[in-house]
Nucleic acid binder design. Structure first.
Lengths: 341, 341
DNA sequence: CGTACGGGTGTGAGCGCTCACACAGTCCGA
DNA sequence: TCGGACTGTGTGAGCGCTCACACCCGTACG
């Protein structure tokens, strides 16, 4: 190290390679207009010094901040947190800095405040993970300076040419149960502030109507096992209930316990289906039939799309549906008419 | 807005308030040496312009970067991810920028590389969440320039004067089962690369030895429900097994299923106890007895300690133990000697 | 043989902030 | 009445990088 203290900086590399700082900068950024021999010399100098560009200085320089803001609902839920991790990783892998903000409440006001704060910090793009419905609409129609990618579990355009439709999966779940002979399917919805909850409910309703099956009023939970348990008690008390579609796996867990405690066998008396395929789903009692989305992949694709939008003029996505996979396990079975007592 | 385009900056505020940029800087940083009347004028100007200091510029300025690096094991596991979220939030709340790095493997080499990268970026302190054992020891004895706080689920000093001892909880779990009359307790350990897994195993062994109960070789899982299921099959095959302590709740879930499939009732034939108290633990079949740590609070305390170390000379922590709470639910019960067939 | 061109390179400025210092004034004791 | 301690404020520089531009020197063209 030539200098006394800190890590080597760009000018140190330049001095060692016998070129100007700008040439080094060009090499770092893989810009054209550098003779190969020069490039090699610079590369060698960088290597010798163990040089690493300082992110904060790059961000600070006028022009590009190389920062993407990620604003997410700060829950411990499987879906959002999986998404968050994959989005953060994808952004970082693309060479951008991530600036995450976890909101305990992701409504219109908080969302706009967050976005404003982030743009003030100079982010070049924003990913919003699971905003509430009003926030999602507000963000999508923001005149804003920077591109915003909204991942709301609804009709998300996650890549140029690829859209994911939240209602499809739910329809598949319901059709599976109807195919098993169930006269109808009850629904335990998530909080309808969330697009994902609405879509799953919508899909459920659509599938029932298409099959001419009766549509009962859905119950509503808050995504937690606790709320699933409460709803499960209600369903368990009704002997006509033979199949339940829960909007996520956590609620399905609570459902399973409530049915068990009420002496209603799953799937003997009641079939249960969840959504998400959390890692534990296969090991519940009984193993849970559920719908799996490749959330990590979707996060990656969404980031790719955002970055392409950041780096060049937006391309309109062409709707091509991605549908969650139905994972059939032991919690769903043939309908057996209840024997009269 | 006076200028054409961007957000207002410090000099804009200075101009409006009729002071120098330095005075504004002093007001922002709550430094002394500003007359009250001047301060008010500046505050008013800031408010009028909707001024927000630009984080990246502050970090870039010589001196303090106001950034804390967080390096964590990038798993979907409850413990680490809860910790991570709370640490990130605490750091942000303290007015620092967080720079997170999620590692798929957190061993010695990766850890050191990460820390080197982060210090090169100029972080003022580092929090390491759940490094593997060799990484933890390497980090703890790093001559490094910046303070490092290692949270490894072992003997962590999470605040000046507060230490958390991972072995204590496990001992409580085992004592609970012995008190219920079980001749001994089997253990399903986590991967021993992790300090947390070692501590829990150590606590289990200590409690058994103290009670003079036989110590069987523990099985080892990988924290997942899947591995818990595999281990559960082994335990289920042994009629002498009457109580199992799993190193985390996820593995306990797999355990429950395996026992159920083998026709061994919980807690009738076998008692099961977990660790973590994941939100679903109370809704398993049967509801899981487990140990709860206030991970979020610990994250907060750890950050507070790190920051105090960053801001002023280190104070040595005095050992005061924090012990996880035993949450007794239905998965543990009295020992009933197996009836001969 | 002068001009135009373009690849390869260097020069300067500036991003928005904080540091260290210099500079006014005011009040005190000598 | 002057030096010295304040207090409050302003000035300058610099953090490490990227932008826009100026500058070389060859080659190709008129």
């Amino acid at each position: 190290m030539p200098e006394g203290h800190g890590a080597p900086v760009l000018v140190d590399v330049a001095a060692l390679a016998g070129v100007s700082h700008q040439t080094v900068s060009r090499v770092i950024n893989e810009q054209p207009g550098v003779r190969d021999s020069t490039r090699e010399r610079v590369l060698a100098a960088m290597h010798e010094l163990g040089y690493r560009p300082t992110t904060v200085a790059r961000s600070h320089a006028p022009g590009r901040s190389r920062t993407i803001g990620v604003v997410a609902i700060g829950s411990a839920l499987y879906g959002p947190s999986t998404m968050l991790r994959s989005v953060e990783a994808a952004v970082r892998d693309a060479g951008y800095t991530v600036s995450t903000e976890s909101l305990s409440r992701f409504d219109r006001a908080t969302a706009l405040a967050s976005v404003e704060r982030m743009t003030a910090q100079g982010v070049e793009g924003i990913v919003a993970i699971d905003p509430e419905v009003d926030a999602a609409t507000a963000l999508q129609s923001l005149p804003g300076a920077v591109p915003i990618m909204v991942l709301c579990g609804g009709l998300d355009a996650i890549a140029p040419g690829v859209q994911i439709d939240g209602t499809e999966g739910a329809q598949g779940a319901v059709r599976h149960l109807l195919d098993l002979g169930h006269p109808t399917v009850r629904h335990l919805a998530g909080p309808l502030r969330w697009e994902a909850a609405r879509c799953r409910m919508e899909g459920w309703r659509t599938a029932l109507e298409a099959a001419g099956a009766p549509v009962h009023e859905p119950l509503q939970g808050d995504w937690s096992a606790r709320s699933g348990f409460a709803a499960g008690r209600v369903f368990a008390a009704d002997p006509d209930v033979s199949a339940v579609f829960a909007a996520n796996d956590q609620m399905a867990i609570g459902l399973l316990l409530a049915l068990h405690e009420a002496g209603r066998a799953v799937p003997g008396d009641v079939s249960v289906i969840g959504f998400d395929d959390i890692p534990e789903a296969a090991y519940l009692i009984p193993p849970l039939t559920t719908l799996r989305q490749d959330l990590a992949d979707e996060g990656r694709r969404a980031v790719a799309m955002l970055l392409s939008q950041v780096e060049r003029p937006a391309t309109e996505p062409i709707p091509v549906r991605v549908v969650p996979d139905l994972i059939v396990r032991a919690s769903t079975g043939r309908y057996t008419p209840r024997r009269d007592p």
